[in-house]
Nucleic acid binder design. Structure first.
Ligand SMILES: [Mn+2]
Ligand SMILES: [Mn+2]
Ligand SMILES: [Zn+2]
Ligand SMILES: [Zn+2]
Lengths: 125, 125
DNA sequence: CTGTTATTGCTAATGATATGCAATACGTAG
DNA sequence: CTACGTATTGCATATCATTAGCAATAACAG
């Protein structure tokens, strides 16, 4: 059930979002159970924790469904909270380059770009 | 005193690290007070919160002294926790490019590269 | 059907951070 | 310096996300 609900969510979600989505399907799962299962799903490569430094002040961490989807990073609007997913291979290549320069083997990265979306640039200039 | 201690720390620190460093100088400051003053120092551009997704699981957030220092990002060793600071202008340029492609005005970013340092590559291959 | 093991829910513990408030330090006008 | 209003502290307590303990329940295998 948990897996099913996760696969049908297309946006980033918190453990509580999952509980709500499950409840909508008639499945009442304790939050504790959800918290207990998230690490397994993460290790299995089905979800990824995407807690953004930008929104970290207070509040639960967020995850996203990544099974079968290509890697992407995020662009966030500081004002409206909108999240845009992007892929930019040249960036990934440069990250590898930085790691190599320091003799590191790069395993993964977390990159978030924070700015103002087109709409928010106008309304709050 | 707080400001003084921060300026003499050259590594990333937690609020508790600050308390310890202050105590070493003979100044006993309540943790509450430190927590209360960190946001001001951050707004003033003296420190920056650098909580890494990599070490976020449990534990306090970390800050670093940035006043007068040029911008940098971090390369972390997953195994030994070592942090390396780097500047790589080409990366920053590409980040701007991504933002522009989506009509965003880029304000800041958070990037952490996680991998294995040279030493840890040998000991845990 | 029955004993064995894995998963759940409930409740209470943790640990970082925030808040209420009274006590103290500070800065300034007299 | 001296008294008073304001800003800053410390202490105790609240919050809130996440975890742990444990007994109840479901899943599984023979
Ligand atoms: Mn995403
Ligand atoms: Mn740094
Ligand atoms: Zn916006
Ligand atoms: Zn290492």
């Amino acid at each position: 059930m948990l897996l099913d609900v996760i696969c049908n969510l297309d946006f980033h979600f918190t453990p509580e979002d999952l509980q709500t989505a499950l409840a909508d399907q008639g499945c009442n799962m304790a939050l504790t159970t959800i918290y207990r299962n998230l690490p397994s799903l993460e290790n299995a490569g089905i979800i990824r924790r995407t807690t953004f430094m930008e929104e970290q002040e207070r509040g639960a961490s967020t995850y996203e469904h990544i099974w079968g989807k290509p890697h992407h990073d995020h662009l966030l609007c500081q004002n409206c909270g909108q999240k845009i997913e992007f892929q930019y291979d040249a960036l990934e290549v440069l990250q590898e380059e930085v790691a190599r320069q320091h003799g590191f083997t790069l395993l993964r990265h977390h990159m978030e770009l924070v700015g103002l979306c087109p709409q928010c640039q106008e309304s709050a200039p």
